[in-house]
């Protein structure tokens, strides 16, 4: 199920990363990195839902599992770039900043933001996942066979 090469892959990756950031984290990183650019709303932040689907027996036909809340918005920078955000939860401020970063990643600021925003965010999310995985690993059962008495 690995993606083949696609020119959209880098954008897909940063948008996915921004959607999974803890609340307020992208705003904090962006505001430390730079002054926010001027923009207009292409689509003002809107709260809605997405129906999460899964597959019967994990691999069979799809079924509707239930919805999740999602906030979306789109911005246009003064320089013309359009940024989109679709992020889990109901947080308009987070959606706004995710859309801004998506737009900024299409400008000259991209390289700087990669280093000071996306990379640190990715490491933080990975570290938190690794911490959980390490706790799970500590609960892995090591079986051993008891020596049977042979009288």
């Amino acid at each position: 199920m690995k993606d083949t090469f696609d020119e959209n892959n880098p954008r897909k990756a940063w948008m996915s990363l921004l959607a999974k950031a803890p609340q307020g984290r992208v705003a904090a990183l962006l505001d430390t990195a730079m002054k926010r650019p001027a923009f207009t709303w292409l689509r003002a932040p809107e709260i809605g839902s997405t129906m999460v689907r899964a597959r019967a027996a994990a691999t069979g036909a799809p079924f509707n599992l239930g919805e999740m809340t999602v906030t979306r918005c789109a911005v246009t920078l003064a320089t013309g770039e359009v940024g989109h955000a679709y992020i889990q939860g109901r947080n308009k401020a987070d959606a706004e900043v995710a859309a801004l970063v998506d737009a900024l990643m299409q400008t000259e600021a991209a390289e700087h933001l990669r280093v000071v925003l996306l990379d640190p965010l990715e490491s933080e999310i990975e570290a938190s996942k690794a911490a959980r995985a390490a706790k799970a690993a500590a609960t892995k059962v090591d079986f051993f066979t008891m020596v049977r008495g042979e009288d």
Partner: peptide, 15 residues
């Protein structure tokens, strides 16, 4: 009360 934005790609529980 929520507008539905769409449906997800089926989640991959193997991952």
């Amino acid at each position: 009360t929520l507008p539905r934005f769409g449906s997800s790609v089926p989640v991959h529980t193997g991952a």
